[in-house]
Every structure is written in structure tokens, then in C-alpha cells.
């Protein structure tokens, strides 16, 4: 897994990238909050937000192609739930409203992720007095996420190479074993990490 697939452009050097992470976080949250709370009739507001977001993307030099692909990738998850609204009277209005609002919010969050490295968001969380245990967990999760996904894929591939049984029961059992082994390796890795943290003076 390429680790930069999610926030490929977060380390560019533009005015938007240099802006304080806290300001960008608060700004993004404000846009999302207002968009969610806005009445459907406020078409002018939605258009203004869309133009503003696109201008910000241009300013941050994030390619349209990339934005489009990210949205296309995320939209099915929205549609999956939005589809439920069509089963009620007047549902098409609710459906349209949800699609507009969620697409604008998705665009906002993709922009935030691609202008602000995750480590800086964590620093903001720490300044906001989010409990240290949660921030540490988030930091370690971000650090080891890609390592463990790669490890899982390696184990899975190795297993597939050696297993010729394509029956569903076998596939499920193998998957259980792979995930179980992954947990065992994770606990061993956590022990090594703790030793390394102590060696560097962590308290």
C-alpha cells in the first residue's frame, strides 16, 4: 500500500499548506457544521461553498484529477446509505439534499487531509487537551497502519500462494488464521516498540 494515496499532496509548499493547522481544522469543521445545518433552500450558500472550496484547491495546487478520483472513490459509501431515503414519501428531496451536503463536506475533508499532515492535526489535538493516551494511540496507529497493512497483505499473499483450496470454508479459516497471526505479531511488535521508546527516554 502506498502510504501517500490518502494525503498525497499534504506536504506541498503553498500558502494554504503553510497556514496553521489549528486554523485549517477549525475552518474545515466550521464549513462542515454550517453545511450540515443549512436549510435546503439556501442554494446560494451551497454554490458559494463549492466555489470557495474549488478556489482553495486551485490555490493549494491540488490537481482536479486527484480530487475527482477521491470523490468518485468515496461517493458509493454515501450512496449506500442515501439510497434508504428513497423508500419514503418525499424521499427524492431528502436524497438530493443529502447528496449535495455530503459531497461538499467530503470535498472539505479531502482538502483538509491534503493540505495538513496528520502529525500536525495530532499536535492541535494535544494543544486542545485531548487526553494523552488517545493522542498517543492515534499517533502510533498512524505510524504503524501502513506497516501492518503491508504485513497483512504479505501474509495473505504467502497463504494464497501455498493454498490450492478455493472452497469458501477454507478461505474463511485461512483468513482467520492470518488475522490471528497478525495479532500475535502485533503484540510482539508492541513489546519491541515499548523497549525502543524506553531507550529513547519516554515516560
Amino acid at each position: 500500500m502506498h502510504h501517500d494515496f490518502l494525503d498525497r499532496y499534504s506536504r506541498l509548499d503553498t500558502p494554504l499548506h503553510r497556514a496553521a493547522a489549528g486554523v485549517k481544522l477549525v475552518g474545515a469543521l466550521a464549513i462542515v457544521g454550517l453545511t450540515v445545518a443549512a436549510p435546503l433552500a439556501a442554494v446560494a450558500y451551497f454554490v458559494a461553498v463549492l466555489i470557495g472550496l474549488l478556489a482553495a484547491a486551485r490555490w493549494a495546487r491540488i490537481p482536479w484529477r486527484y480530487l475527482g478520483w477521491r470523490l468518485l472513490w468515496l461517493e458509493p459509501f454515501v450512496l449506500g446509505v442515501a439510497f434508504l431515503t428513497l423508500f419514503q414519501p418525499g424521499g427524492h428531496r431528502v436524497f438530493a439534499g443529502i447528496m449535495i451536503k455530503s459531497t461538499l463536506c467530503l470535498l472539505t475533508m479531502v482538502l483538509l487531509a491534503n493540505t495538513t499532515p496528520f502529525a500536525e492535526l495530532l499536535r492541535v489535538l494535544r494543544q486542545l487537551r485531548v487526553p494523552a493516551l488517545l493522542v498517543t494511540t492515534l499517533a502510533l496507529l498512524y505510524r504503524y497502519l501502513f506497516v501492518l497493512v503491508d504485513e497483512a497483505e504479505r501474509m495473505h499473499r504467502a497463504r494464497v500462494c501455498r493454498t490450492f483450496d478455493r472452497r469458501r470454508a477454507a478461505v474463511w479459516r485461512n483468513l482467520g488464521t492470518v488475522i490471528g497471526q497478525l495479532f500475535v505479531r502485533s503484540t510482539e511488535r508492541a513489546e519491541r516498540i515499548y523497549a525502543a521508546m524506553l531507550a529513547r527516554g519516554w515516560k
Binding site: 498517543t136 492515534l138 502510533l140 505510524r143 504503524y144 501492518l148 502485533s186 503484540t187 508492541a190 516498540i193
Partner: peptide, 9 residues
């Protein structure tokens, strides 16, 4: 550290 690594797991 196990919490963070378990989350990644």
C-alpha cells in the same frame, strides 16, 4: 504502545 499497534492491527 499495544493500544496504538492494536488499533493499526
Amino acid at each position: 504502545p499495544l493500544l496504538g499497534v492494536a488499533a493499526a492491527f
